[in-house]
Nucleic acid binder design. Sequence first.
DNA 1: AAAAATTTGTTGATGCATCAACGGCGTCGG
DNA 2: CCGACGCCGTTGATGCATCAACAAATTTTT
Lengths: 157, 157
Amino acid sequence: MPPEDLKVVDDTPNAPISLHQYVTYRIARVHAKLNAQASRILREASGVTVTQWRVIALTGVAGTTRLSVLARESALDKGLLSRNLKTLIADGIVSARVDEHDHRAQILKLTAKGQEIFEKTLPVTQVRQRRLQADISEEEMRVFRNVLDKLEVAAEA
Amino acid sequence: MPPEDLKVVDDTPNAPISLHQYVTYRIARVHAKLNAQASRILREASGVTVTQWRVIALTGVAGTTRLSVLARESALDKGLLSRNLKTLIADGIVSARVDEHDHRAQILKLTAKGQEIFEKTLPVTQVRQRRLQADISEEEMRVFRNVLDKLEVAAEA
DNA sequence: AAAAATTTGTTGATGCATCAACGGCGTCGG
DNA sequence: CCGACGCCGTTGATGCATCAACAAATTTTT
């Protein structure tokens, strides 16, 4: 009987194993739910997708930036960013002009419309963030982020 | 200047805001990295994908199960599961036979080949799990999971 | 100054995830 | 018994994410 194998491990006190399907798993689940929530909130607030909002937020904060910088800062795929920027530019939310000093690169900036979306949406995301954390103490949060850091490092090895 | 807006918020002591791009964001990043790592490890170990492995593991543990049960237990989309099962069945890893008592449902089970993969791969995932947690104390882990739970609840609201 | 290597951003291919619509089956109330 | 309803699993459509190949521009090496 196959169940035996896992049960033994799972029932072991302090078993690191019941967590296999747990940590990675639970992160995946929580991630999916947070993502769905963010997606819904952003769509209602301003009709942008999560990735689009990330680009808008990063660009808004930076004032002026470039795709390669966004890719580094956000850890998002440059191909993904390129596609997203294309629609943001087409929608008049981001402007792009060729860099004088490097003709490969484009200088990205929010348009007035983009700026408006940024300023309107930022508070919405802040409220959400506060709600998410309402029930979590600072100490818990500190530990949480610390563990995330450790997991991220371990995930790269 | 747009940066002002955020800077003010970000620099506020105890600002809940510097975390907007943090918690959700960091979870997304860690998730992506964990996923990529799992994907690589599983491909090397037995040539299955992450979702396939989840199906195999759940089925292996359960001994016998059904798609709807898998969907509930794993919180994966039933459509996604259906597609994955299709290839697992085609590859001779899972067997399916119609339930006598409910002709809509199928009874799923690992084949000998699937059982072999399950038994060969389980330890690999266990080792990985131990590595991931090597640097994390039990207390940290407890807090971490607790925060994940709270976030998951908050994400559903 | 020419060749090689690197960087920037675009595109295509593929796989994953989510949502919605559907056909078939079973169950429950009348 | 039978019609309404809900559940099981499949399929299609769509969007997201990752990887790899590429052209153009720049930088480094020799």
